[in-house]
Write a protein that binds this DNA or RNA. Structure first.
Lengths: 157, 157
DNA sequence: CATTTTAGTAAACTACATTTACCTTGAGAA
DNA sequence: TTCTCAAGGTAAATGTAGTTTACTAAAATG
């Protein structure tokens, strides 16, 4: 038991080799997700709920069509449409007819909607700054580059 | 617009610098999550639903107490208890009284429950194999090590 | 011009999580 | 000891959010 490391999150000891890529990605991803919601709620956007976040995910909903947002979020277009309706009521966006295709609609962020998106990016950049300080600039850049290579690859299709 | 890269997932072009750590972690984490559920369902565990997965997450439920599983999954103990009840009905685990503390209970995986967990690990290792092939062994190990440093750090608390 | 596919919408249904509430046990204070 | 309170577990009610089913209109296809 010499190569085991202490872990404050669980009662047991956990070895590096036991950590598979699933947990290694999921844990920080969820931590970031929770933090963004929490800070957004604290920053004057208290009427935003967790499912709303699916819409503001990179690269954001502005100019997109509902169907595209639905598949981006991995949900049905009906569910997405409800979310969009909710956000429209709350004044974060509006849906208007798309010029050209008369059956299609297009999502446009309002000023308040843009403010949310900008704030989310601010929070993310603050998080990146912290990671930078913890890992060191060189390793943090390396981490992002490696993740970007994954993102580009067929692995995540 | 010279440093922009094409992206098949979105209709727009996306630059590396625009990708923040949130999306870089979330996208592959979700892809892995979906794949595990899909392959588990196809591997004879069709009665497992998405929320059930919260229980089988690393390091697994065997020997743990419900309350610990609840905080690990970030949900209320009541919600966790329902999930456990559901999985117990399906024959994946059983809850028995913990020896010593008579108010506490302890979760034990059944043979079938252990089979699910083992299968999930197999799938993850298959995924790691693919990532290994795509990134190269050296870079893949580097990625895991960097993520493990994040996992150890106060960043994800 | 007829058929099929796609975008959008709405209602019914279902799943699942939180809230509220209660029981029991263990720990600590009085 | 005895009282009080915190913690683990459980259950029912409530609320939210998702899929399913169903429909309309427009574009694409033949």
């Amino acid at each position: 038991m010499t190569n085991l490391r202490k872990n404050s999150r669980h009662a047991t000891t956990v070895a590096t080799k036991d950590m598979l890529i699933g947990a290694l990605l999921r844990v920080p991803a969820e931590a970031i997700h929770r933090r963004i919601i929490r800070e957004l709620n604290a920053a004057g956007f208290g009427d935003l709920s967790l499912p709303h976040m699916a819409i503001f995910r990179f690269p954001g909903p502005d100019g997109a069509r509902p169907v595209v947002l639905a598949q981006r979020a991995g949900m049905s277009k009906q569910a997405m449409n409800r979310l969009l309706g909710s956000l429209e009521e709350l004044g974060y966006l509006k849906r208007s007819d798309a010029p050209g295709e008369s059956r299609a609609r297009i999502v446009r962020l309002t000023r308040r909607g843009h403010a949310v998106y900008a704030r989310a990016i601010d929070i993310l950049e603050e998080i990146e700054h912290e990671w930078n300080a913890e890992l060191g600039r060189e390793d943090f850049v390396r981490l992002k580059q490696l993740l970007f290579r994954v993102w580009e690859s067929p692995l995540v299709r």
